[in-house]
Design a protein around this nucleic acid. Sequence first.
DNA 1: CTAAATAGTTAAGAATGCTAAATTATAAAG
DNA 2: CTTTATAATTTAGCATTCTTAACTATTTAG
Lengths: 152, 152
Amino acid sequence: MHSEPFVDTLKKWFEVSMHRSMRNFIHYARNSGLSMSHFGALFHIQHRGTSGVTELGDHLGVTSAASSQMLERLVQQELILRTEDPDDRRVKQIVLTDEGRRILEEGIRARQGWLDDLAKTLSDDEKETIKLALDILIDKAKTLKQPIEPES
Amino acid sequence: MHSEPFVDTLKKWFEVSMHRSMRNFIHYARNSGLSMSHFGALFHIQHRGTSGVTELGDHLGVTSAASSQMLERLVQQELILRTEDPDDRRVKQIVLTDEGRRILEEGIRARQGWLDDLAKTLSDDEKETIKLALDILIDKAKTLKQPIEPES
DNA sequence: CTAAATAGTTAAGAATGCTAAATTATAAAG
DNA sequence: CTTTATAATTTAGCATTCTTAACTATTTAG
């Protein structure tokens, strides 16, 4: 069924982390009054530095109308700033406000807090081995084709 | 700002994998006609082996009524089976059907496919180092307090 | 046996999020 | 300059999802 044990291990660790992370994150999102999609949007905006309305909609798999409506709510909550792109005034530039960045980072912390606990169970030797390995993965991931929106 | 570089690396890898995985997953979910919550439910049911209605609702952060309605739809789509618990006939036992398991696994594949590509960029030595490291992490994660629903 | 608690469902109504279509503004092509 | 294309928004309507409250069935406690 599977190609090789190495890839299985890679996938296994991913599933373990996903499962550990989601519960806290779901509850944080709910208490903060934002949906998972809202967080997805904030995350995408931060990651891209800035983002247009349509592009964000494509990322989330919805129409530009839906994207526009969602962003309108985030503007009202003062989590994002929406300004004209001076180079092409049809386009809007979307960036996070300080509050938006704060909320996002708090969400990420909720999602990753368990990693602090995990680190405490590791010896210094183990940490060294693991850090070396993860640095390779992080580095190689950068060389992979970026998951950019398809043009068509 | 951060405790130690090791934990930063741990978190960094998690963020990189999350970001890589979500785009494909979002689009797969959309095309399959299921919401992210539906997948969350299917995943939780598989992971727990079986699950009650209220417990699943707690996991997803919704009332038992909402959980019940959602499960009703999954039953109609023949993705889950809902039967009486013989030990306590107030309780329903929820399990995946074969089709439910298939859909879930396809979603997981969509989410993890990029890891196959990543593996191809690694040398055998690197793979060995990484496998060793991840095996430690997977093992230690098991010893952590399980993220079980709080009783109250 | 009766009363209280628990699990799940159902119904009604509110909120949310989505789409398609029309609209406005700007840019690019001829 | 005119036409066409693009980006975003607004509107109207629809589908989904959630909550609260009422209800049924079953179990547990007294």
